[in-house]
Design a protein around this nucleic acid. Structure first.
Length: 976
DNA sequence: ACCGCCGGGTGCC
DNA sequence: ACCGCCGGGTGCC
């Protein structure tokens, strides 16, 4: 079941097209990506050298510990200098001069990566040995060996002197290798069976009005434990005075603390949002509730404050009071304050319990150690300052600072801003950037708000769920940080219970100066649909890593799309030391695992297990399924083309075959990728409706004569690639293409991405996909022309098609049998959806439409309309496959019509999951329309074959093999 | 002695 | 560094 994740290639970007998808995958494995492809290197050998200058630096290393080698070309004493640092980045010393010359040469010319292990640790205060191993691409082996021997160093073949992961000394590493199949299975199951029966259940606080299901209580219990538990994390042991990491063999003086958070990777529909809401309300400081309903309050007031829709307009079904917190104006100033509504329970007594938040515990023990048990100067100061800056005097004090904070926070929450300030306010700089930067590691009582970051498409879902699950008489301050009018006041943001925002807003803020979100000290940051940040090169990912927070959570249904590399960003966000530094991740986890090392895999499994909770729809709690979803069945409906359609199709097919077979013969299939893609797309469009083709009739594959012709042709190809409604992946950023441009060699990229390539490579700039020469002046943009005219043209000269008829007869039959059943009609081609509107209208179906071009506001309206059970609400939703992918809930539908096969079966599944999820009452029936004797049939065949393939799993095949199988697929598609 | 040897000063890059 | 290297002092045994 899970194996289908493997073939999802681009995952959430839904690059449905085989050519696009795997081609860029193939490219990823080829280019000069040594640094980014740590798993592709081979070991050239190793040699013994020495580290000098130890006495000048503080970095310590143990026997067997790994060290990193960092070039220092700016070193004033030697431009060849190579610095040696330990796992935590502290400098240990330098590589001895003569050896540094060699390393500098190898490193600067990118001939090999050099990794160091210290075999004996520090034996004197001046120098020590280091074993250097050289990793690189096979074609560089000779050069490296020559460099080494010409400087009369001796390269030992193999990893002699390499330390074993178990710490045994200086023996050749005996790694147990796994077969590709074992590896694939292990990887597939990496996120399975993580359910530890030992985790208990925990009820949510009263403020949560929806009863949690057993598995949700388990998740809550687990999440609270993750946030509160102070036990040593995995791979750490106490060794005398120090703490010792068994993987890197490093030790540190300060007690390493467990990641305060983790990955909640439950399947879609198991209630990750609800569980997270429960967590936020149930586990504030010291494991106490955030706030509770006032029990004595006779009439609960429905007031969910500081809340607005993305568009600033109140949603229709929104029962709670919706108020916009105006910029620069604190909601605390509202007149109808009812301070008693919020009771923030946070007792200081907890400080003395066993399980407390680390910061406080550390503080207590620190004070004791200093023999000042009741002191706590530093703490008291911060607290006072916090109180002071809020202009709030607090007189009651039970025990030290904590109670002050509590009252202070309660006051802040309930809006007692006009209390009598005894000292003058220091302005709104409650959180100064300096404080923020310096308070990373310690527990921070000022951190109070939870920041939720999600894709725009699920923002409204969070608001709905908060309404639904939080008791109306709980006054929860939720601020939607979105839109140009958003309140950027950090004091205001810090004082919220929750702040909701999107990845885009976050990265937009980040790119500016003084990002408010990066200034606030958060209690908790939650990344919803966290796999969005799997590519570490994106602005979003960089922005996310820079957030200042105590606790970190990732919510995702698909923790790994198809590669181990996807995991790194998640690990980095969680600050899973030391793997948040790429080198250690690569050396300890990624390369060993990719090369089939059993120990590496075990380490990876342990690592994942200690931060992840994942249950699937088929998981069981105490022998019972988590949730009982209705059945779901798939039937394939074969569609026969009419005589006329068949003739048209065959004409196009023959033409396409001729072109492609020529490319195959020439071995230029991949170079002519855009043409091949165009042919395939055209055939797929023919299968749906001839009107999909638009004016893309130009003959492909003929060399253009004039620049104008070439330009026209490129624009046409660009339109083909983009206009299908399927998503395109940029081979540079590996994300959906934004601001698309097409190169003269007919490859599509984001303009900024390819511009950067050209800028950095200058005259030698080459197309990342085909290595053809590219110039900035030759990039062609999509002209913003009048598509409307074409659209109306489409509708005026209306004709039906076999597939349209097949759908219509199904829908009509369905309506006559049961007119309460709602359907999703899904296509990758948005134009097809437009075409389908005509017969639907003709037959008097009420329908709505959801596609990627619609604004968020419109989407929310449409979904609400469709989900509503009011009489006269629509029976059908026309849905573009891409738009149907993420987060949305369409459980009102129980029939799905997949109009055209997608390349990525996972995309289809995701789409079906929109309705086959919690809340679905009926059995779900999925109908796939496949035109008999067409590319569609071949696509389905190849999909099935893919599912059976094993070796694709880890990307263990080398790039040329992958390219070959890609060509084979195209041949199979065209029956060549 | 335009050497060798001795012993003190010194020390990353 | 319980080294190596440098450079000054010194000089048969």
């Amino acid at each position: 079941m899970q194996s289908r994740r493997w073939f999802g290639g681009a995952g959430f970007s839904f690059a449905d097209d085989p050519v696009t998808e795997t081609l860029s995958q193939a490219i990823r494995g080829t280019g000069e990506e040594l640094d980014r492809e740590p798993d592709t290197g081979v070991l050239f050998g190793s040699l013994r050298g020495s580290v000098v200058g130890l006495r000048y630096y503080t970095g310590v290393v143990n026997k067997g510990e790994m060290v990193s080698l960092v070039r220092q070309p700016q070193n004033p004493y030697d431009r060849n200098a190579v610095m040696v640092a330990n796992v935590y980045g502290s400098q240990v010393g330098h590589i001895k001069r003569e050896l540094a010359v060699l390393l500098a040469n190898i490193m600067d010319n990118n001939l090999a990566r050099v990794e160091g292990v210290v075999p004996f640790g520090v034996t004197n205060q001046f120098t020590m040995s280091v074993v250097l191993s050289f990793w690189g691409r096979e074609e560089n082996r000779d050069a490296v060996v020559r460099q080494i021997t010409s400087r009369s160093f001796k390269l030992q073949s193999g990893p002699t002197g390499f330390m074993c992961a178990d710490g045994s000394r200086d023996l050749p590493r005996k790694s147990v290798l796994l077969t590709a199949e074992e590896l694939k299975n292990a990887f597939d199951n990496l996120f399975e069976n993580l359910m530890d029966d030992k985790i208990g259940e925990r009820e949510a606080v009263e403020a949560v009005c929806t009863p949690l299901l057993p598995h949700q209580k388990q998740a809550l219990s687990w999440m609270c434990a993750c946030e509160n538990n102070a036990a040593l994390p995995h791979f750490w042991e106490v060794k005398g005075e120090l703490f010792y990491n068994t993987l890197t063999h490093s030790s540190v003086r300060e007690r390493p603390r467990r990641v305060r958070g983790g990955i909640l990777a439950d399947d879609m529909g198991l209630g990750k949002t609800l569980t997270t809401i429960a967590l936020i309300l149930s586990n504030f400081h010291h494991g106490k509730p955030l706030c509770e309903p006032e029990k004595s309050s006779p009439e609960p007031k429905a007031s969910t404050t500081a809340r607005k829709n993305p568009e600033g307009k109140s949603g229709d079904g929104d029962q709670a009071e919706v108020s916009v917190a105006p910029a620069g104006h604190s909601p605390c100033m509202r007149a109808n304050q009812a301070e008693t509504q919020v009771v923030c329970v946070e007792s200081v007594d907890v400080v003395q319990e066993d399980v407390v938040e680390d910061g406080d515990k550390d503080w207590v023990s620190e004070k004791k150690a200093k023999g000042r048990p009741q002191g706590g100067k530093a703490k008291a100061t911060t607290t006072k300052k916090a109180a002071k800056t809020k202009g709030k005097a607090v007189s009651t004090s039970r025990k030290g600072g904590a109670v002050l904070e509590d009252l202070d926070f309660a006051a802040a929450l309930s809006g007692l801003t006009q209390g009598a300030p005894q000292k003058k306010s220091v302005g709104k700089s409650l959180v100064s950037p300096v404080e923020a930067a310096s308070s990373q590691s310690t527990d921070d009582p000022a951190a109070r708000a939870t920041l939720i970051i999600c894709p725009l498409s699920v923002l409204s879902n969070w608001l709905d769920q908060l309404d639904q699950h939080v008791r109306a008489d709980v006054k929860l301050n939720v601020y939607l940080y979105y839109g140009s009018e958003r309140n950027r006041d950090t004091h205001f943001l810090s004082s919220q219970h929750m702040v909701l925002t999107t990845y885009n807003v976050l990265s937009a803020d980040y790119s500016g100066s003084a990002s408010p979100l990066h200034t606030v000290r958060w209690l908790r940051v939650v990344l919803d649909e966290g796999h969005i940040i799997r590519n570490p090169n994106t602005q979003q990912s960089k922005a996310v890593l820079k957030l200042n927070t105590q606790r970190r959570w990732i919510l995702t249904g698909t923790p790994i799309q198809n590669n181990l590399r996807d995991l790194w960003m998640l690990v980095a966000f969680l600050r899973l030391k030391p793997f948040d530094v790429r080198e250690w991740w690569n050396r300890v986890i990624q390369r060993p695992v990719t090369q089939g090392d059993k120990t590496g895999l075990q380490n990876l499994q342990a690592l994942v297990k200690c931060v992840t909770l994942r249950r699937t729809k088929t998981s069981r709690v105490c022998g019972r399924p988590l949730v009982s979803l209705p059945e779901r069945s798939v039937r394939i409906e074969e569609v026969e083309l009419t005589q006329k359609e068949r003739e048209e199709y065959e004409l196009a097919r023959t033409e396409g075959r001729t072109t492609i077979s020529r490319y195959v013969a020439e071995g230029t299939v991949l170079r002519n990728y855009a043409d091949v893609l165009a042919i395939l797309v055209r055939l797929r469009q023919f299968c749906c409706h001839p009107g999909l083709l638009g004016k893309t009739t130009t003959h492909t594959g003929v060399v253009a004569v004039t620049p104008a012709e070439l330009r026209e042709r490129l624009i046409m190809k660009l339109r083909l690639v983009l206009g299908t409604g399927s998503d395109e992946e940029c081979a540079v950023c590996l994300d959906s293409v934004r601001l698309p441009v097409i190169t003269h060699c007919a490859h599509v990229y984001c303009r900024p991405c390819i511009a950067e390539v050209i800028r950095s490579e200058q005259e030698q700039a080459r197309c990342p996909l085909c290595r053809g020469q590219i110039k900035a002046s030759e990039l062609v943009e999509f002209p913003l022309e009048e598509e409307e005219e074409e659209e109306s043209n489409l509708l005026e000269n209306w004709r039906s098609s076999s597939k349209v008829e097949a759908l219509m007869s199904s829908l009509l039959r369905l309506r006559s049998e049961d007119d309460s059943i709602r359907s999703l009609v899904v296509s990758q081609f948005t134009r097809f959806l437009t075409i389908l509107e005509i017969p639907l209208r003709e037959e008097g179906f009420k329908f709505v439409r959801l596609d990627g071009t619609m604004s968020q506001k419109r989407r929310a309206q449409v979904i609400q309309e469709f989900q509503s059970d009011a009489p006269g609400s629509p029976l059908i939703m026309l849905l573009s496959l891409k738009a149907g992918g993420v987060g949305i809930n369409l459980s009102a539908a129980s029939r799905v019509f997949l109009m055209d096969p997608a390349w990525n079966p996972a995309a289809e599944d995701q789409c079906v999951d929109r309705c086959h999820r919690l809340g679905q009452k009926r059995d779900v029936v999925i109908t796939k329309f496949i035109v008999k004797g067409s590319v569609e049939e071949n696509m389905v065949k190849i999909q099935r074959q893919k599912q059976d393939l094993v070796e694709k799993a880890f990307g263990t095949k080398n790039p040329s093999e992958r390219k070959t199988s890609r060509v084979d697929e195209i041949r199979a598609l065209m029956e060549l």
